[in-house]
Design a protein around this nucleic acid. Structure first.
Length: 105
DNA sequence: ATTTTGACTATGT
DNA sequence: AACATAGCCAAAA
């Protein structure tokens, strides 16, 4: 278990209900700006064992990244059940959400 | 050791 | 806005 992996797990655990983050944001926060794919791998490998809110992680376009229909349907269901903010069919990540708040300030 | 493979991303048309 | 392309990088083959 590398320090990077531990940080990624910690960060994902901290994503509040009703909010989402992108792979890239998480990688950057964990200290590896180009580690988005590692975040994917970690999520895939550890989400069950560490009870991670895997469904709160999306790609940079604000879309669900998971490939198979079963999983993607499950993810959108969970996100909508949490009331994640959506505009233009895109889920709004934590950082962008903050940006929107500033815009309205 | 080398190649392939992704639940990715930034950038340029 | 949609698409192609180049980087990216660890794990699996």
């Amino acid at each position: 278990m590398t320090p990077f992996t531990e940080r990624v797990i910690q960060i994902i655990k901290c994503i509040p209900e009703g909010k989402v983050m992108t792979y890239g944001q998480i990688a950057k926060l964990a200290g590896s700006p180009r580690g988005a794919r590692q975040v994917v791998r970690i999520l895939h490998a550890m989400s069950k064992k560490y009870h991670l809110p895997w469904h709160r992680v999306i790609n940079a376009k604000g879309e669900i990244a998971i490939m198979d229909d079963e999983g993607s349907h499950m993810q959108s269901f969970l996100l909508q059940a949490e009331g994640v903010l959506i505009t233009d069919q895109r889920y709004i990540s934590l950082a962008d959400y903050q940006y929107q708040m500033e815009e309205h300030a």
